[in-house]
Design a protein around this nucleic acid. Structure first.
Lengths: 209, 209
DNA sequence: GCGCTCTCTCACAACCCTCTGAGGAAATTC
DNA sequence: GAATTTCCTCAGAGGGTTGTGAGAGAGCGC
């Protein structure tokens, strides 16, 4: 996890550790290069705006070094839109700041699946009782019936399903599902839980408690 | 995949891997020759402008070596237009830079089909509901009725069909369907989706979501 | 050289999504 | 049992995204 902003690096690092990954952080391109050499990561999350070197240059440098580590770039909104163009083909991907951790982790999983052919069989579906969620098609079904969800609703349900049977604090949910710099009213959460209940628990035993 | 431009080599290599091929890259004619000998590829994608040797010479050399690997040449626009012309006779093909990955992969499939008679049975048709797309004749039918598509429309529809049932980001589609150095407005995408909807989803249940 | 087709740009309208804030219900505390 | 806090739902404003059409320019065939 490479970012010169301490806050971001720690945030992502923690989230990834909780998600079961082993993480090493670096604040500069220089550090990143030695870390790639010594730590041999399966994937690198890389802020393009590093103090000492452009993120893209770093990747090129790593390539010429012979390293083939896949990368997920962190970019500012708007900016570098065209520079980023082409990345999704290279097996890499990018996420614009500010992102939600839920989204970042999801992207990481996709890229890792793509790079580990043997792990390709690992299902992209989550299931609980008669509720199914497909991470590829973004389709959600309750008892076979298709349920239309908005983006935020989907992220929220996904996070809840990943933590099925576990009690989560309001802060945990906000921190993972909403963008990390979300400054609005925390009551959005209740609103969206309400939306989900309407759509998911309308017919059938309530799954959201 | 032979190209001295690292970026191009990686780009194509990744796209092909995602498409299910096994890929080896080389940056020079010299490397290419040893790779052909050791790796025994079913097809070679070859940039004609290599640093150490002309691409055509390399192919001749390989032929005299006894190798019969089919080739897809990458050439710059305009340049060597007539030199390349005779190539398609030999069962080979060529693609001008900048190309779209969608197109390159399509050409590769055609050449491979032509060279693997037994694999000829491998269908060149994509189908979804009552929508059919033929990769050989470039014909598209909806409910049996022939639909006239332009080149870009066809590439877009082809990419969507290859990923049927999967949600794609705008960036993914742009990266695959448009030329890799496309720097224009990303809104072309919406325009072309609109065109496709007119032609494909006009009569019949909407397939493009 | 002319006309045609195709690709891309641009602008605008419509819509959907997100968030806010209020109000009522339920639960908890005193 | 009353007061207070917490929880839940709803309606609506605002902003952003999406979808469509018109038109300019490039390329191609005749």
């Amino acid at each position: 996890m490479v970012d010169d902003e301490r806050y971001i690096a720690d945030l992502v690092s923690m989230a990834l550790k909780v998600a079961g990954f082993e993480v090493q952080t670096a604040a500069t391109a220089r550090e990143a290069r030695t870390a790639v050499r010594d730590f041999r990561p399966a994937l690198m999350v890389l802020d393009v705006g590093l103090p000492d070197q452009d993120g893209f240059e770093l990747v090129q440098r790593l390539h010429t070094d012979g390293s083939k580590v896949p990368v997920i770039f962190l970019t500012a909104r708007d900016a570098t839109e065209e520079k980023v163009h082409g990345l999704t083909v290279g097996g890499d991907d990018y996420v614009t700041k500010p992102f939600s951790l839920e989204e970042l982790v999801a992207r990481i999983r996709v890229v890792l699946r793509r790079h580990n052919p043997d792990g390709a069989k690992s299902s992209s579906r989550l299931q609980l009782a008669d509720l199914e969620l497909d991470e590829d098609s973004y389709e959600v079904r309750r008892g076979g019936r298709l349920v239309e969800l908005t983006r935020t609703e989907f992220r929220l349900l996904h996070y809840l399903l990943m933590n099925a049977g576990r009690v989560l604090t309001r802060a945990q949910i906000l921190d993972h599902v909403w963008e990390y710099d979300f400054g609005g009213e925390a009551s959005v959460l209740e609103t969206y839980v309400s939306y989900l209940r309407h759509k998911i628990d309308r017919d059938g035993a309530p799954l959201i408690h």
